[in-house]
Nucleic acid binder design. Structure first.
Lengths: 344, 344
DNA sequence: TTGTAGGCGTTATCAC
DNA sequence: GTGATAACGCCTACAA
């Protein structure tokens, strides 16, 4: 059963064992119908017996179709990106396409390196988050001659296709919602060095909403590096008065720090929402079950993966010359107000 | 700058443009030193100008080294596996090895399909969780002629290398710890259909510890499908008396349901730990900051990834004929007792 | 329905 | 130090 060391079974081995040529084996394994049912059976039996596993790299070299879809995320260790990748993979599965995954760690330099190394595998399309790209990254992407799908944020000048929403806009909307509740001295909590993350767009949205309402947006608390954790939020919550002493609400760049802020405040004897309101971003599952439940900006990360998969499948379908109608796909985002904020 | 449609730049194109042969280009791009500094510079300039990106598939076909490490996880959308994959990827990065990722969704059938499709890419090693494999999966793995690393659980009959810990043992240890606190009517909360997950080993550990202490292990609450969520736990917590009315402690298969159980109990007016104790498994970050903080079984998922990466790098190093000393790597697991349980 | 020849883009090997 | 030639394992194209 186990074959000789050192050498994997090739199609030629199977062909010889079955008494046919390589091509017949190749056909029997792919194009249903071009081979006599009898020989096909014989071949499949040999394949089974010899435990032959085709070498897809060799096949791809011939067909010029790698079967890979390159996918980048800022971090794998994050619910949203995990969900997105899982949805993308699942949606792609029936097509035989495989994901080639990389994480940028929120670094443009890493992104550039990653894009280059992924392109060496000749992916048929690439989906990656847009938080600004290096010049070389853009050049590489444009020269790859494959569909490029930028995710999450909508770039001012898209390379090709985009799926996501305007973080500036939804952040502005949530801020307006908080202002509508009566909050005036709202602080925004985000990371330091968030320039190349969606955090900066959310920060901008907060600022615009505050200024439009004639309020001051100076209560900007910046702490830690992306991605902000519960621990980071907890520290800030435990020392909130150190930052600004008149805060009536904290809008956090993500639900993780929001959860931490609440636990930090609670530990300091400050009640949410009675004393201070707290809002997050991303609707983590925990936000629906903690006490108080957390007001947050809600969207379905899996939807991004599904849309990306569907789009890509259409784009690389050789029989389908038409381009999909829309190059700008949007996903639904809503403000989800819960117990951590209240009408003043 | 952008080159003609349809056709990617090949090494031959670069060679012609630089006035040398393909081999010289190939050398200039890889073996530092076999090429005159002058020609190398000229070649690199052309590469830059033409935006040449080597085709690694073609290279791999020649060298018989794909540069891929196949990695399976039950689910990408899970902190532990996310951390593991991220650590593995990071640790592998300097070697140029790339991860080929797949998720089994806790299904042996999916695992089998996945293993087969990943092996077509000729990975140089494969790391996958052990929760039992189908017969064919084992055959495929054994015939692949690459190092196989089974993760998380330690199989009775390992295929090759293993990294992890005995879930039965650590679950037993936590149960003993709970018994030591004075809990007697402990319930174990896990999924239905957990036969092929580590949940079943944890269940067994709980049972053994209870029986060894002369206590009854019949309070077995099974709900939902793997992986258990906060929501699942919340439902069970909200209806705990429906299951057994004399429970004094709930040991959950993961921190997610533990968090949910606590929130469900709280909502029903039952206090943790005053009325009932709750313990989890996995030490999620939220467990350290919620109120009450959650007692849990703690281990470092990233460590699994790092160990796997180091092991694999050694195993596939062509210059290193020696096998690593140990085929059984263990990771540290501890009981981490916090506020959700108390001394009775 | 099956087989033969040639090529996919790269690297190993052996000349020069 | 550089180049010609022959693989690598499969598939396309064409012939039988």
């Amino acid at each position: 059963m186990q074959n000789d060391k050192k050498q994997l079974v090739t199609m030629e081995d199977v062909a010889q064992a079955a008494g046919v040529s390589r091509m017949t084996v190749s056909r029997a394994l792919r194009d249903e119908g071009l081979v006599t049912e009898e020989t096909r059976k014989r071949i499949l039996a040999v394949v089974e017996k010899m435990n032959y596993v085709p070498d897809q790299m060799a096949g791809s070299l011939s067909t010029k179709r790698s079967g890979f879809i390159a996918t980048l995320v800022p971090s794998i260790n994050n619910v949203h990106y995990g969900k997105m990748v899982q949805a993308l993979t699942d949606q792609l599965e029936s097509t035989g396409l495989q994901i080639l995954l990389g994480h940028t760690d929120y670094s443009q330099q890493r992104e550039e390196l990653l894009v280059e190394s992924l392109l060496k595998r000749r992916p048929e399309a690439i989906a990656l988050p847009f938080d600004g790209h290096s010049k070389r990254t853009v050049t590489l992407l444009k020269n790859a001659q494959i569909p490029v799908v930028q995710l999450w944020e909508v770039p001012a000048k898209p390379i090709d296709y985009t799926i996501g929403f305007s973080n500036e806009k939804v952040s502005r909307s949530m801020t307006e919602e908080l202002i509508g509740l009566g909050y005036k001295n709202i602080a925004f909590l985000c990371e330091t060095n968030d320039e190349w993350t969606r955090g900066s767009a959310r920060r901008a949205g907060f600022k615009h909403a505050m200024e439009n309402a004639g309020l001051s947006a100076h209560r900007m608390i910046r702490f830690g590096t992306p991605p902000m954790t519960i621990k980071d939020g907890h520290f800030v919550g435990s020392n909130l008065h150190q930052y600004y002493d008149d805060i009536d609400c904290v809008f956090c760049v993500s639900d993780a720090p929001a959860f931490g802020v609440i636990s930090g405040l609670k530990q300091s004897g400050i009640n949410v929402p009675d004393d201070i309101g707290v809002a997050g971003f991303g609707d983590f599952e925990v936000s629906r079950y903690t006490d108080p439940t957390i007001s947050t900006v809600k969207f379905d990360a899996a939807e991004v993966g599904r849309l990306a998969a569907d789009l890509i499948v259409k784009l690389i379908d050789p029989t389908q010359a038409k381009q999909p109608t829309s190059k700008r796909l949007k996903i639904t985002v809503t403000n989800c107000m819960r117990e951590s904020t209240r009408q003043l």
